[in-house]
């Protein structure tokens, strides 16, 4: 499907470009080469950032302003964030509550999910949460506990320059994808060089 003569905005291409970098040009506008290189550029920056700084560079809860830029990559950024939150972070829960495995909903809501320290490991416990209505809900909760011999966190939280550069690279990927989405939305605005 190509751009209709006279039309200046292409919603379908814009939406597809939002779903996957470069897909608007590749599948909708029929510009395969542009779409391919757009995807290489955006995904190279995003996954390059992950390679340099680790998965902790994409964190919607702890680095929400950076995530605003990263979110422009589309569902891939949200997927990486979901994996990070659910598989590599844990709730800070007092040891007596972990042992008792039962907690009031108000107290449970105050637990903070965070990256694990180098001397901690992730443990999934069955936790019964007492609702205000009196009902009991049992859930599996990842909690941070002191690491045993040979144990450690599932991922080391990156710090310093590696974290900054990884975050910068993945956010630049999102901002670049915004330009590519705009180009897919308004394909007639590309100008010939003088």
């Amino acid at each position: 499907m190509t751009q209709k003569p006279g039309s200046s905005i292409h919603f379908v291409a814009g939406l597809i470009a939002l779903a996957f970098p470069g897909a608007g040009h590749f599948f909708v506008l029929g510009e395969r080469q542009r779409g391919f290189f757009a995807a290489v550029g955006v995904l190279g920056l995003f996954f390059g950032g992950l390679l340099v700084g680790g998965i902790s560079v994409v964190d919607r809860e702890e680095d929400k302003y950076w995530f605003l830029g990263q979110a422009l990559i589309g569902p891939i950024a949200f997927g990486v964030n979901t994996i990070h939150q659910n598989s590599y972070k844990a709730y800070e829960v007092p040891p007596e509550i972990i042992e008792f495995q039962k907690v009031d909903a108000k107290v449970a809501n105050s637990f903070v999910r965070r990256s694990l320290h180098p001397d901690e490991e992730l443990k999934v416990v069955e936790m019964t949460i007492l609702q205000p209505t009196g009902a009991e809900v049992t859930t599996r909760m990842p909690v941070a506990v002191p690491a045993g011999p040979g144990g450690g966190p599932p991922a080391y939280q990156s710090i310093g320059r590696m974290n900054e550069l990884g975050m910068l690279s993945s956010t630049l990927g999102g901002m670049l994808n915004f330009i590519i989405i705009l180009d897919a939305l308004f394909p007639t605005r590309r100008r010939k060089q003088a």
């Binding site: 080469q33 390059g48 630049l172 590519i180 590309r190 100008r191 060089q193």
Partner: peptide, 21 residues
């Protein structure tokens, strides 16, 4: 890291700004 970062920015940006591929 500046070099690959600039390269990927150029790959993505020029893909939509170059008139003749």
């Amino acid at each position: 890291i500046l070099i690959p970062m600039c390269f990927f920015i150029a790959v993505g940006y020029k893909s939509v700004r170059t008139y003749d591929m």
